[in-house]
């Protein structure tokens, strides 16, 4: 069932998702994915699954963001769209 806070969370979820795929700067996209995982953790918490929320926070926001940043250190900052 939809609780009023859901609207806020879902809205931000959608905004971060769309921003993450349309941004050119890879580093900003990674940070947005971290924010996405954080909002997803709140969604899981609101739905009552606290263990899944914990995992989402620890893996999504914590570790995969760090791994992506580590991978980014090998790439250049700007995504090279083939014109």
């Amino acid at each position: 069932m939809i609780v009023p806070i859901d609207f806020v969370l879902l809205f931000f979820l959608l905004v971060t998702a769309i921003a993450a795929i349309t941004l050119k700067d890879l580093f900003a996209a990674i940070v947005l994915l971290g924010a996405y995982s954080f909002i997803m953790a709140n969604m899981w918490l609101q739905l009552g699954a606290s263990d899944v929320a914990f995992t989402e926070a620890a893996v999504g926001a914590g570790t995969s963001t760090a791994l992506m940043v580590a991978a980014l250190s090998r790439l250049s900052r700007k995504a090279r769209w083939e014109k």
Binding site: L10, A17, L47
Partner: peptide
């Protein structure tokens, strides 16, 4: 996103 909104609405209360 639409699918997720439906799922959130469909899940019974905790």
């Amino acid at each position: 996103a639409a699918l997720f909104v439906y799922v959130v609405e469909d899940v019974p209360a905790f």
